[in-house]
């Protein structure tokens, strides 16, 4: 049955080459922990992606309840945390996932650096990876404000003060992010938009480029 469906689609769209590109490639021995246990360091990238997927899914469920305005934001998070079935777990996964994704990404960066995998011909993939690092830090920073509780608010105040210290563009960057002179309703709406639309869009685009390049070039050889 499944084969027939596949054949039906394949006849019309010729998906076999696509499928071969995505799924059918070799995994060399030196990155496979089943052969050398020390190769577990090559798992960090995959686990980073795994946590990113968890973040996207849990975030999608959080937006079912979250209301991005200063009067209801806190109450909706409070409700989500205390009343909604499994709300505490979904919010907990998103909260701790944010930390885990940074830990995993940090380890992945160190692995790539110390194995020299960023060298020719993989320079571009390294650059995209560092950009991904920045995007994820940005997601962490903007997401921290959204519950609109005390520590969220004052951490953002400090963060925007730091941004303001930049010469020439500092003031502009602060006003752009805060949406005005004070940190309030506009800031929350902006951070929500950045956290839920702008940065995830950039994240998915960069991840696509990251994976395209690794498939095109293959994983770096053994040392």
């Amino acid at each position: 049955m499944l084969q027939k469906v596949y054949d039906w689609v394949d006849e019309r769209l010729d998906i076999t080459p696509l499928w071969r590109d995505i799924a059918d490639h070799e995994v060399p021995e030196h990155v496979n922990p089943a052969h050398h246990f020390s190769a577990f360091v090559y798992c960090f990238g995959g686990l980073t992606f795994f946590v990113v997927v968890i973040q996207i899914l849990s975030g999608m469920f959080l937006t079912m309840y979250y209301v991005p305005d200063i009067i209801h934001a806190y109450e909706s998070v409070y409700y989500l945390q205390n009343e909604v079935t499994h709300g505490m777990i979904v919010r907990g996964m998103h909260h701790w996932g944010a930390s885990l994704v940074i830990v995993m990404m940090f380890l992945h960066t160190l692995r790539v650096f110390f194995t020299g995998s960023y060298k020719k011909p993989r320079e571009l993939n390294w650059v995209v990876g560092v950009l991904l690092f920045f995007v994820i830090l940005g997601l962490g920073f903007t997401g921290y404000l959204l519950p609109w509780d005390m520590k969220a608010y004052f951490a953002t105040v400090v963060g925007l003060e730091i941004a303001e210290a930049a010469p020439f563009v500092g003031e502009f960057a602060r006003v752009l992010l805060a949406g005005g002179d004070i940190i309030g309703a506009q800031t929350l709406a902006r951070f929500f938009a950045i956290h839920v639309f702008f940065l995830p869009g950039a994240l998915l685009g960069l991840l696509g480029a990251h994976f395209f390049m690794i498939r095109k070039q293959g994983i770096s050889g053994p040392l």
Partner: peptide, 27 residues
């Protein structure tokens, strides 16, 4: 996740001047 629920403090009060801020650990 189950052992440590995500923290939530009281609603933001911009007039509270004594609050000592702390960013998330990775900053």
């Amino acid at each position: 996740t189950v052992a440590h629920p995500a923290p939530l403090e009281t609603i933001a009060d911009p007039t509270e001047t004594g609050y000592v801020p702390l960013p998330d650990w990775y900053f």
